[in-house]
Structure formats: C-alpha cells, structure tokens
Design a protein around this nucleic acid. Structure first.
Lengths: 355, 355
DNA sequence: GCTTGGCACTCCTATCCCCAGAGTGCTAAA
DNA sequence: TTTAGCACTCTGGGGATAGGAGTGCCAAGC
C-alpha cells in the first residue's frame, strides 16, 4: 500500500486545505490547489483510492473528503514540513523563559506561552518531586501546637513545604539543632539516597541515637515519604478551544474540560510522552481517551541537566495547524529545559561525610 | 412601593418555581403552587403590578413571567429563607477543612468543596502577602551564579520563595550569617514594621553598617518589595457551568471562561466583598462586569485571627438555588477561617530587641 | 370593589416541505 | 489514462403552517 507521488500530493493538499478551511474538500477545490494540472474527474478517481486505504472519508455522499485519523498520521509522519518559528516569536519566547525566575514561575510561563502563541490550550506536566535531584536544605519551624512546618529545598531551586503533626511540641532550639544536623549530614546527596540513608540510619543506630538526630530523621522521613503521586498539571488557555468549530458541541466541550479538571488521563498521557525523545503527537483516538477523541496533542519532554523530567504540549482539535504547533512546542521545550538547567546549583558535591 | 403580602407570596413562589424549572412561570402554575386559592385571572392582575414595579418581566407576550434582577434582589434580601446545610455535609466539610494541612492546601480544598457541593463554580481569593502578619523566618540560599533563593516564612505558616539576582556571588557562610542576623533581629515583628525598619536601618546606619547586615537587609528588601499585586484566584468546577441551560450559548460561556482566566475583574469583585462582613451577593449586572451579567456570585470573606484576609464564593447562573448556596458559602468561610486561625503560631511576641 | 370565567389575540416553536447548491460516481469518448 | 458529461444524492436554509401556552381585557358574580 505504497502511495503514488500523485496521491501523496493530493492527500497533502487536501489536508492542508481542510486544516485551513475546516470544510470537506471537493475535487474541484483540490484541482485548483494541488498544482497538478488534473481535472476534477481524475482527482475523484484518486480519492476513491485514498478512501479505500482509509486515509480520507466523506461525511456523506455529496460532500467533499475529510482526512481520517490515519490520514493525519501519514501526513504528520511523512508529508508535513514544519515551518520554523518566526524570529520575533523566538525572541519573545527566550525573553519570557529567561533563567532568572523560580522554576514554578518558569513552568507557568511556559504553559501560558504555549496557549498564547498557538491560540490553543497549553499544558505542562510538572513532575512530582524528583528523586534524582540533590538535597539542598531543610528547615523545621513550629506552628501552633504540635504542628510543624517542614521546608525542603532541592538544588534545582524547588521549595517544598508541608505541615506535619509531631508527637509532641518541640522548642525552637531543638528544631534548629535538628535542621542543622540534617543539613550538615545530607546536603548534596541525591534525594533517593537521602531516603535510603534515613531508613538505614534509623535501624542501625536507633539504640544510641541522640535525641536530636532521631527528631531530624523522623521529621525528614515524614516530609519525604508523603510525596506520593502529586504530579501536577497546568493547563492554560482552555477557553481558546471554545472557538474551535468542531468542538462547539457543548457535550464534547464539557467532556474535554472535565478531562482538564480530572487531570488523571492527561497526566497519564503526558507521562507516556515523557519517555520519548523529541516530539510526540497523539492524533484523535490514538490517545485512548474518549474526551480527547476529537483532539490532537503535540507534546515534547523537557529536561533538567539532560534528564527528562516533565512534558509540555498543546491540545487542540485534530484539525490543527501542525506545521505551526510543532515548532512552538519544540522550541518551548528546549528553552524551558535550558532555563531550568541553568537554575540548578552546581556546588561542591559532598559525599556523605559522617561516620 | 410597598408590596402587599399577597404580592410577596406570589413573587416568592414565582421565583422559586423559576429557579426550580428554569422556564417562565404562567398564572396557572402560580395559582397551583402559591397556596392562595386564587384564580389565574386574579394572579394575572397581580403580575401586572409586579411587572410595573420592575420585579418580573415576560420574555414575550405569550410566555409566563420571569424574575428581573430587581426581583431577585428583593427575593434574596427579604423573602428568602435559607435552609441549613444537612448534618452530613457539614461533617464532610469539617473533615476536609481540618487544620492539619498547610494553608495553600486548605484554600485549594475550600475551592473544590464549594464547587463540589454547589455543583457550580467555586472561587477563592487568596490574599497577597499580608502585611499584618508576623515575620517568622528567612533563608538565603545560593543557586547557580548570582541567583539567590530567598525563602520567607510568616507566622500563618505561609512560605514564600523567590529568586533574586544579587550583585555578586556570596558564599554559603555569608548567606547563613546574614539569615541568622535577620532572623534574630526581626522574628515576631509585623511584616509592615519589618519593611519600615529595613528602610530606616539602611538610612540611619549605612555608614558603619557591617557587611553582613547590609547584605541581609538588601536581600530582604528585594524579596519583600516585589510583593505587588500578586493576589491569586483559584477557580474550580468551571465545567459545572456548562450544564447550565442559560449559559449554553457558546459566546456567553466563552466570555465567562475568559473572565476566569483573566481574573482581573473577579479579583476586583472579590476584593470588594472582602470589606463586607457576612454574605455578599452580586446578582446579574450588579457586579458591573459584562461577562458576569447572567451570573450571580455569592461570597463571604474568610478571616485569620479576626482579620478578614480573603474571600470565597460560588459563581452560578442568576437562577441558582440561593437558599442552598448561601449556607454552603457561609459555612465554608467559617470553617476555613477556623482552620487558618488554628494554623497561626502564637509564640512569644518579641519586640525588637536590638539596639 | 375585588374576583373570576370567558374569549380573542399574540407569539413562540416544532415540523414539514421544497429547492438550490455542492459534489459525487459512472460512463463514454478522446 | 484522462476527461467531459450527466444523473443522482445529500445537506442546509427558507418559508409556510399548526399547535400550544399564556396573556389582556371585559363583563358578570360575590
């Protein structure tokens, strides 16, 4: 089922026209735009072939043709030529994603920019706390009663804080001591190693463990263990999708917006995409989620220090301007990666220096 | 323009029916439900009066009557009897808004709960950093290059972190010293006083200021000054509004969702509501924003330690079940206030103890 | 004087029908 | 293999129509 060059040209033109106009493309229109100097009748013959291959279909007998999901797939994989983003937009992106902002800010910016430039919905998967990042600093502060505020800073500049309820009240001095102990012992270690070390510390030395050490390790464990599946998803510009004609069915829209709120499916999808290098595109039902069956999602992983830690992308109708969206997603991912990597402190890497 | 008791009953019944059914209410229906033993014809006469007073209107000659904005206002102000929330829901709310979570979490929960229980959109204004709260703790950590991470903790358990770019690189020791100095000098002071103190410190003693003090005050000022207007708005359950029949016009919906994204107008509205004690309700165009002209907003301020610091509420169609929504908003606000107040640490209030 | 039944009238909505327009598939000729 | 011609199909919009709901008003009744 190799496609003849002519059929390729026609499919490409058809999809381009359909993306531009949003209406089924007839043989006459195709004849005009394909630049092949063929009559509509000839084109109709080719259309029959394409239809048999499942690349196009017609909504009803007397309408033009519309690309199918497979058609889009072929188009995206082999026929599409992306156009580079124009200079000005690249400059704008660079400015907005400069490294002198905290990571949270950067990620929010990225999401906004994606939706702004693509005029579709932008989405960013913020990875849950990364175990492969180095521990930087911890603070214990007592709130009222037995509530303690634990602040955890990692080398990528992320600040994590949570409230835990301790077994009793602790004085400010105790807490400070505990934090000092912890910071001195563990700074520079990978979080995953810190976790492991905490467990073995507790077991090995619990007998002669000093009070302060016990306190520090207990608190830190409590803070570290509850990191669960708190992946976070940022969606921006959802309302852009309300202008999309193929989504102006309230029911479809509603389903889509619920997917944005529920997040579960999207998280899963973006998580998949994170394991892939480069751009990954889900077209229509390829995503496997009903709410997204009329949508395509163009995604790219972003990385910190060469490791892919999250995904960002654009969600729009299957009929979207891929040749524009793809470079937008691509460049945003690169710039975000660069900015986040620049954030990472590169201080002396202490190996564990205690007995 | 006093309303006769009979007219009041009829208006109340009309609005209740309209809220329940969503369709213009005719004289026959009204006769059945008002419990007044009047004929439709009599009721029609009363309707003419109500219409002249601008409390109801009819979409067209041969439809029933619909409440106007003024009608709703009168209803809400004088006719409405709220029903207490059922026991089970109150218990559920209490559980979800218990004090052992950090403030951010609490506020997010509140927003979700509002939308969940009301089946409409929940909204919470998260106040920008509160100047009337006491300073608790500060940390300076160097990231790569001249970037510094400043972590600011206030007594209400809020953690604020931002990246600032310093004039040069600082060693970990310098930064620690600076933080120590700062924590010792300012802990327990109101943020507003800290700010003032910083300014005068700089001016008074700049000549003989030690390096570390200068560093600390400069960093802290930088961190404190950029608090600007970063009020935050949390919206949940927007998609609930897509089921509302009077909003199923895509254009209206789109405008509304844009208002959620733009936030400016909503912020302004909720800010207004913050200055009011108790429940404040904006009906239809009363809000003054076009995007909200078909909506009502039921709001209540929440407080920390007796001071009203933020607002929460529910956004739905003007035709919403006020008697349900009002207690939901009311109780959520109370519970959130209680939980946030319990968070606040009540440590020894140091007065400034330095020379 | 308030209330009520009756009745004509208005306006909306759903439905049907019809027709123009667009595009197809097929066939026969170039 | 390509093309012109032609009959056929399907959609979508416009107009007409009928049914339904509810009103306003009037005149009679309590």
């Amino acid at each position: 089922m190799q496609l003849s060059p002519r059929a390729e040209v026609l499919l490409k033109t058809l999809i381009e026209r359909y993306i531009a106009e949003g209406e089924p493309v007839g043989s006459r229109t195709l004849a005009r735009y394909a630049g092949l100097d063929l009559s509509p009748a000839t084109i109709r013959n080719v259309m029959v072939d394409l239809e048999e291959m499942g690349l196009v279909s017609s909504p009803h007998t007397s309408a033009g043709r519309v690309p199918t999901q497979r058609g889009y797939r072929l188009f995206v994989d082999t026929l599409l030529k992306v156009r580079p983003l124009d200079e000005q937009q690249v400059r704008f992106l660079k400015e907005e994603l400069s490294a002198d902002q905290d990571p949270q800010q950067l990620i929010e910016n990225a999401s906004h920019l994606l939706s702004e430039i693509s005029k579709l919905a932008g989405v960013v998967l913020v990875p849950h706390r990364d175990e492969q990042v180095r521990f930087r600093h911890i603070d214990f502060l007592s709130l009222s009663g037995r509530r303690l505020l634990v602040i955890l800073v990692t080398e990528d500049g992320r600040v994590d804080n949570r409230v835990i309820v301790a077994d009793r009240e602790y004085s400010a001095a105790e807490l400070e001591q505990a934090a000092n102990y912890f910071n001195e012992s563990y700074t520079g270690m990978l979080l995953s190693d810190v976790k492991r070390a905490l467990v073995s510390d507790m077991q090995q030395t619990s007998a002669d463990l000093q009070r302060v050490i016990e306190l520090a390790t207990t608190m830190a464990r409590r803070a570290l263990e509850t990191d669960g599946n708190d992946d976070e998803l940022l969606v921006s510009g959802e309302s852009n999708l309300m202008d999309v004609p193929e989504l102006n069915d309230i029911r479809k829209l509603r389903r889509l917006f619920e997917a944005f709120t529920a997040k579960r499916d999207l998280l899963h999808l973006l998580d998949q995409a994170m394991r892939v290098k480069g751009i990954k595109i889900f077209i229509g039902a390829e995503s496997g989620y009903e709410a997204l069956e009329d949508c395509s999602i163009v995604t790219a992983a972003y990385s910190v220090d060469q490791r892919q830690v999250g995904t960002l992308g654009v969600i729009g109708p299957t009929r979207m301007a891929y040749e524009h969206v793809i470079p937008i997603v691509d460049i945003t991912a690169r710039l975000l990666s660069a900015a986040l990597t620049a954030q990472v402190a590169q201080p002396p890497r202490l190996e564990r220096s205690r007995s």
